[in-house]
Amino acid sequence: MTRDEIREQVEQVFQDVFQDDDVRLRDDMTANDVEGWDSLMHVNLIIALEKRLAIKFAAAEISRLTEPGQNVGNLLDLVMRKRSQRA
């Protein structure tokens, strides 16, 4: 999968989880830019991403994504790395 294909898939998961068809992902977006992206929704997002993309995040990775400075670009990179390890 290319990074754009990954972005498309992840975007769909965001739309499902946040129930908002208008969510568009940019690399520099953070949790503050998506309405409702709190710690609870973060867990829901991780669960949905794991299922849709058939990947598994490590406990530390789940937590790290919520730290300051982390953005959607980091998430996409992480998903991309996991998908390529899988292949």
């Binding site: 867990v43 299922k51 406990a59």
Partner: peptide, 15 residues
């Protein structure tokens, strides 16, 4: 699913 127990104190795997 210890990952979610550690990160979010969930009682079992989400599924």
């Amino acid at each position: 699913d210890p990952r979610f127990a550690h990160h979010a104190k969930l009682p079992c795997a989400p599924e």
